[in-house]
Amino acid sequence: MKNLYLPELVTIEDITNEAPDVVTFRLVFKDEALKESFEFKTGQFGLYSALGLGESTFCIASPDTRKGYIECTFRKSGRVTGALAAMSVGDTMGFRGPYGNAFPIEDWKGKNLVFIAGGIGLPPVRSVIWSCLDKREDFGDITIVYGSRAVADLVYKEELAHWEERDDINLVQTVDPGGETPEWKGKVGFVPTIVKETAPKADNTIAVICGPPIMIKFTLSALEELGFSDEAVYTTLENKMKCGVGKCGRCNVGDIYVCKEGPVYTAAEVKLMYNDF
């Protein structure tokens, strides 16, 4: 019988400590056949199990251009994430997925890209960034604006350093006022303000944003001011989920089931939704 709620076993192949209480796992399916056949699209999510303690929902933070493994980045905050964070390389956990829709990256060929993320909102954007960087020649200018509360809270520090070095990416890093350190070379200010300052050209450009609800709200209006159309702005909604397959009834925003019809939406779609966030 096909059991929707049965997780697959995965092994933790690598662990990176990103920031205080934030870790990235690289996961590989135990089942050899599945390891070969597993496919997903950038933007999709999964349910990760600390077997015996429960499941949590995170996006797949690695790009679909890289096969053989998946990555997830999460903040230790509850029973499941606490148990996962205590695990070591070689340990076994569970995975169900991939679920949900994806970013229509194919449709963006020839366009400029702006990625905007705040705090722990970078993981879903990071998978899009790498998906695009792995096909760099398909796209025009790439701008990344990433901010967090404090320098320590920036995730993917190694990758940020790498993007900083590349001359085919314009990376703008910022921390909230008061979150800077003496060594900090980036900007100081809230993400929406920095987006306005950076002022990427709206013409022929796609924007992808993810972060806390308040950041998304103000960034959307900043982008609107800069002339971005709502159809050119993408975001990914993160609601609480248990089943991931449109049954358990908690991720809905009005009549929209985020787990099945989302999590990726354009700003135009978000604006049509019920105020149920």
Partner: peptide, 13 residues
């Protein structure tokens, strides 16, 4: 609506 929850001891859940 439903919840999915794990319960049990250390070795068998």
């Amino acid at each position: 609506c439903f919840d999915i929850t794990d319960e049990g001891g250390f070795s068998e859940t």
